[in-house]
Design a protein around this nucleic acid. Structure first.
Lengths: 250, 250
DNA sequence: GCTTCCTTTCCCGTTCATCGGGAATGTGCG
DNA sequence: CGCACATTCCCGATGAACGGGAAAGGAAGC
């Protein structure tokens, strides 16, 4: 049971349809969706039609189909993560105003770091992270923080599992990662030089709840040669400010 | 055909389930969902179970159910509106840094203004708008801009339809609204004093595409006594900057 | 402890909506 | 004009969704 790969209920099929959309492929024909989701053409058209009627998908001026704003509304309006995001935003803006690179907010989601928000300076170099994107916990500064100040069982399962590298400098040795996590706990922040991409450094601090557990990670992405002192101070301040804002809301 | 109110297909039922979640009710039991969506108890439990399996809903530590992050991911990752949002964010931050109130981004969505983003100063007074919230076009500055610089057919249909007021100062007379739209076109911005709530003023400018049509509205919410010159200048600048960013992306 | 109320799970026969093959129509391109 | 593709329409078979009902699990109160 709990078979995750297969599944053929109505809803799992629906998810398969939605998953055919990616950041690089935001619009496609109903037939394309069908092919990618492994559905017969007539079935694909029927399902897409239903989803369009329901407002979860939209038809372009062309005949192409895209994810509907309605879906975003439904998902966003009532998401608990949105509260966290709104609580953190003012603090993130401040960080971004002083450290004009990339400022990010991530939470733990099913064993990965899920990025809820990202403020980027137009001048800053591109990097891989995107809003609603994910990264493995061991391979980014946000993940390290979420791991180090999170559930011990999760730490062990990550340490046990395969540690896939994103770049040459991503730690893949469990012993190295364990030491790194200890260091993160000691310092109170995570510095990941070249973990995600060789050219950039991630710096992250935890946003904690009353029990001291990390509920989120605030991070910045910097070029290797940037000083980290200012960024770290700003992140610390932002984390405290977010924690206060969260305490108010709850 | 195209009956929007009823509908009993699998997907419409799914939407009904999702719609039982609201900003104020982010978690509920499966039975509650069933009652609100008009489903028999056993059916509600089955559907909720399927949705949880698919990751679109999540179970709390308790037995309560909330909207899953997976849904947000699917909706956000591939939304075309997200590009607009990311293109506008840096400009919005700048506005927010100078005009420390509320800075908002809205698009036209099915005859209403849908707010994609909102930056709020912690010190600023609360107001009604929320991320993923909607307002009628005639009843907010963003809506006026989207209308005035948008489709002429839409203007007429709004002018023809009932103009529900949100406050005592919301324009409900078509003739008044028509003059107001002319004024917005002439000035290039919309000033809505007390339209949404009596105590606050909305100020909005259009973000336009190459054809001059509004693709979005950038707005600020101010107390009545605030001067609008600075805010307007910042909004104009932000709109231009967003337009440039959008041109790059396309 | 017992009772009450509510949620949740499980079972199961009925039925009706889903499924998808196939043909016809529409659209765009060279 | 012909080709390749997407889309719409039709329709009969089938099996999965449906939901009533019973029973189990839990929380609160007396």
């Amino acid at each position: 049971m709990a078979n995750s790969t297969s599944g053929d209920s109505v809803t799992s099929r629906l998810v398969r349809v939605l998953e055919t959309f990616t950041p690089t492929r935001t619009a496609q024909t109903a037939a394309e969706i069908g092919r990618r989701a492994g559905l017969p053409s007539s079935t694909a058209h029927r399902i897409v039609g239903e989803l369009v009627d329901a407002g979860l998908l939209e038809r372009d001026d062309d005949r192409r189909v895209r994810v509907g704003m309605r879906l975003w509304e439904l998902a966003t309006r009532s998401s608990h993560a949105l509260r966290l995001r709104q609580a953190a935003l003012p603090a993130m803006e401040r960080v971004q105003a002083r450290v004009r690179e990339h400022t990010q907010l991530a939470i733990l989601e099913q064993g990965e770091a899920l990025f809820l928000e990202r403020l980027s300076d137009p001048e800053a170099g591109a990097n891989i992270t995107r809003v609603a994107g994910r990264l493995p916990l061991h391979a980014c500064s946000s993940g390290l923080v979420l791991l180090a100040f999170g559930d011990r069982a999760l730490q062990e399962s990550v340490l046990a599992g395969p540690l896939r590298p994103l770049s040459r400098r991503t730690p893949t040795d469990p012993a190295v990662l364990r030491r790194k996590l200890d260091e993160v706990r000691t310092l109170g922040h995570a510095l990941a030089r070249g973990y995600v991409e060789e050219v950039s450094t991630g710096l992250a601090v935890p946003v904690r709840d009353e029990g001291g557990r990390a509920v989120a990670a605030l991070s910045v992405v910097l070029p290797h040669d940037s000083p980290t002192e200012l960024a770290l101070a700003e992140l610390r301040r932002a984390a405290r400010s977010t924690e206060r804002a969260l305490a108010h809301v709850r």
